[in-house]
């Protein structure tokens, strides 16, 4: 009886937390299907009185929305892909190679996680400008090809793999790249997927750096498009902004649903046993 009561308390707490987290999403979805007048009069009604697709149609008419989605996806995919590759290779080197200054290098690398973006924003902007990548998607991508967080997460995950597995492969004359492909990747897959998701969502939601680099609308990312409707430029068209918001979160949500098992696994995994 006591245990049931205890567990109920936790359940109520979890339900409250989930509600707090989900209310803004429900609000956005609901208002994206309302007219502006309806939204102002019944803002907190979950079910729209007169559901309409007007806002979505408006977005597609007013903006090269497909292009913007492709831009965002392109940037997020390339950034995620590169970060995963560089993190995987660096983490492998940090775990399995012995070289002078390894710990110092790792320390320096991890310390970059604590440097605020605002500090490196201007040097990066100047570099990108000099390279001629202003108002270019590659300008957004180039400074983000590696990430200390990814190296840290994958290194932690690789450290749970018994070293003897790698040694067994060395004895079979397996190259390091093949070891990564055949042994490391399958064993750190959950960590790899969740790190990838984190990178993807971070890049997808990125605002400050793209707003600096990208100028023309056809190069915009979804965050910039969203900003058009909630700033002085777009003003009060907040139902349209909600429609853009819903479309912005659609792809990361689908990715999360597909990979949720792996993501949850990563955070509950205690280690790999041989």
């Amino acid at each position: 009886m006591k245990t049931e009561l205890n567990s109920m308390k936790w359940h109520i707490l979890i339900i409250i937390i989930v509600c707090i987290l989900i209310i803004p999403v429900v609000f956005a979805v609901s208002n994206s299907f309302k007219t502006l007048a309806d939204a102002f009069s019944n803002m907190f009604n979950i079910i729209p009185a007169n559901p309409t697709l007007e806002n979505y149609i408006h977005v597609f008419e007013k903006l090269p929305f497909l292009q913007i989605t492709i831009n965002t996806f392109f940037i997020a995919a390339i950034v995620t892909g590169f970060k995963i590759i560089t993190s995987l290779l660096a983490a492998y080197a940090f775990v399995y190679f012995h070289f002078r200054g390894k710990n110092l290098l790792y320390f320096v690398l991890i310390s970059t996680m604590f440097i605020p973006f605002t500090v490196i924003m201007i040097p990066n902007y100047l570099t990108i400008s000099c390279m001629g990548f202003r108002d270019n998607l590659w300008g957004v991508i180039l400074p983000q090809l590696s990430d200390a967080l990814g190296i840290f997460l994958l290194r932690q995950s690789m450290r749970t793999i018994p070293r003897s597995l790698i040694e067994a492969a060395y004895l079979e004359n397996v190259s390091d790249f093949k070891i990564i492909k055949d042994i490391i990747i399958p064993l750190v897959k959950p960590a790899l997927i969740s790190t990838g998701i984190i990178f993807f969502i971070n890049s997808w939601n990125e605002y400050v750096w793209p707003v600096l680099v990208l100028k023309s609308k056809e190069n915009y990312t979804l965050s910039l498009a969203l900003q058009m409707f909630i700033s002085a430029e777009g003003g009060t068209e907040f139902t349209i902004a909600m429609a853009v918001s819903v479309m912005t979160m659609l792809i990361p949500l689908v990715l999360y649903i597909i990979f949720q098992k792996h993501i949850i696994n990563t955070f509950t995994m205690s280690g790999i046993k041989g």
């Binding site: 018994p162 003897s164 597995l165 040694e167 067994a168 060395y170 004895l171 079979e172 004359n173 397996v174 042994i183 399958p186 064993l187 790999i272 046993k273 041989g274």
Partner: peptide, 20 residues
């Protein structure tokens, strides 16, 4: 000479089987 070129087989204490 690297391990792979020494023509040795080894059985490890923890067996080192690939779990996947």
């Amino acid at each position: 000479i690297p391990s792979g070129k020494r023509n040795v087989s080894m059985v490890f204490q923890n067996y080192a089987l690939f779990p996947h």
